[in-house]
Amino acid sequence: MRALVVGPGAEGRFAEVPEPVPGPGQALVEVRQASVNFSDLRHMGRLPEGTVLGYDAAGVVLRAAEDGTGPREGARVAAFGAGAWAERAAFDTGSIAVVPDGVDLVRAAALPMAGLTALRSLRAAGPAPGSRVLVTGASGAVGRLAVQLAQRAGAHVIASVSRPERAARLAAGLGAAADVVAGRDGVEPVDVAVGRDGVERVDVMVGLDGVEPVDVVIETVGGPALVAAWALLRPGGNLQSVGWACGQPAVFPPNSTFSLGPARSLNSFGDVTAPADDLAHLLALVAAGEVSVEIGLNGSWEDLDAAKTAQLGGSLTGKIVLAVGRTP
């Protein structure tokens, strides 16, 4: 079968690879759509040459698991696991969820890594209703979902983005218009109604200037943004470091990790084990219209180079999802 693998020079290339052989607790899935994560491309060089790329997929079960677990043959599913950028893949049934009617496979494929990261990092941080939650990189895939999930949990959300145009797109994507002051300096918060009843609100801000102290941070940018977000954390607060999109080092000033009162905590995050139940929960929220997934580009996997340029160049917001299969 055909797959996208790590080629010479840590570049993605097509190759003919052996058909996957599912274990007893695995289902064989015909992959129809696969999404691109920032880490898939940035860290490609860390994988051995010939490794099948990708983690997020959606498709149809060709062969159900021999042990009777997981979805039946013919079910539409979303899956999370290594080797997703292939015409067929074997996934643990604990990593597969049935896609509800009304959710297309493009949106389903966009959900696994970003959705699980947003959901589980918020769960680990434990924001209470009414608490203040800061989400950095809020126009990115993880950030945008974290904003919606935190708001749904009753938190007051401060969504930080890097540029005014991203603030406007985020506001529009959450279902409300917003006026954004251009430029980093002196930017005022933008109130965006996102609840069905218009009661709950999210403040969209460019940068972190003027942000008041917060109880929880979901930090996706890294570098200086991580340092600045830590400084905004109240005593007893929790910061979940879930990404490092900027690629810059984080340099903490002397004594910046000390504060009086209950201890603040900074946690790394990367728990994507046994995601089936959480993935099903996220898909149900999408089906109910309670959470939306932004698709920035839906093309063919033949156009991986263009997708890579768009993803790493920062010219696109929303997930990149590629249709898998041979071009006629």
Rank of each mutant, 00 (worst) to 15 (best):
V52K: 04
G183H: 05
R76T: 03
R32I: 06
A310I: 12
V321C: 04
E165R: 06
R88E: 06
V216D: 13
E294W: 12
P71S: 09
E30M: 07
C246G: 10
L282W: 05
V98C: 00
A280H: 02
L47Q: 07
M1D: 07
S265H: 09
A65T: 11
R42N: 11
D101L: 03
A15R: 06
R264D: 15
T136A: 02
G23M: 11
G102D: 10
V61C: 06
S160F: 02
E165C: 01
A178C: 15
G237N: 08
A225K: 00
P224F: 08
G289I: 08
D92Q: 11
Y55S: 12
P48S: 08
G318I: 05
S315W: 11
L226I: 04
L260A: 12
P24K: 10
V202H: 02
R152E: 05
A125V: 02
A155C: 09
D277A: 15
R184I: 13
S35Y: 03
S265M: 15
G186T: 05
E66M: 04
E302K: 12
A159V: 01
V190H: 01
V217F: 04
C246M: 07
S35M: 14
R132S: 15
I320G: 13
A78T: 12
S241H: 14
V181F: 01
A27L: 10
G222M: 08
P22E: 08
A307Y: 03
A150C: 06
A176Q: 04
S241Y: 13
A306C: 06
D209Q: 14
R152F: 00
S292M: 07
T257K: 02
S268G: 05
A79C: 08
D277M: 12
E11Q: 11
G299P: 00
N267S: 13
L266E: 06
A274S: 05
L105M: 07
P262M: 08
L116R: 02
A153D: 15
V227I: 10
V29M: 07
L105Q: 10
Q248G: 01
S139K: 00
A168L: 12
G59I: 07
R234P: 05
A97W: 04
E16S: 12
V211Q: 01
R326H: 11
P328E: 12
V17K: 15
V206F: 00
A84G: 09
E219W: 05
G126E: 12
R32F: 01
A250C: 11
V106M: 07
L119K: 09
P20A: 13
L260M: 14
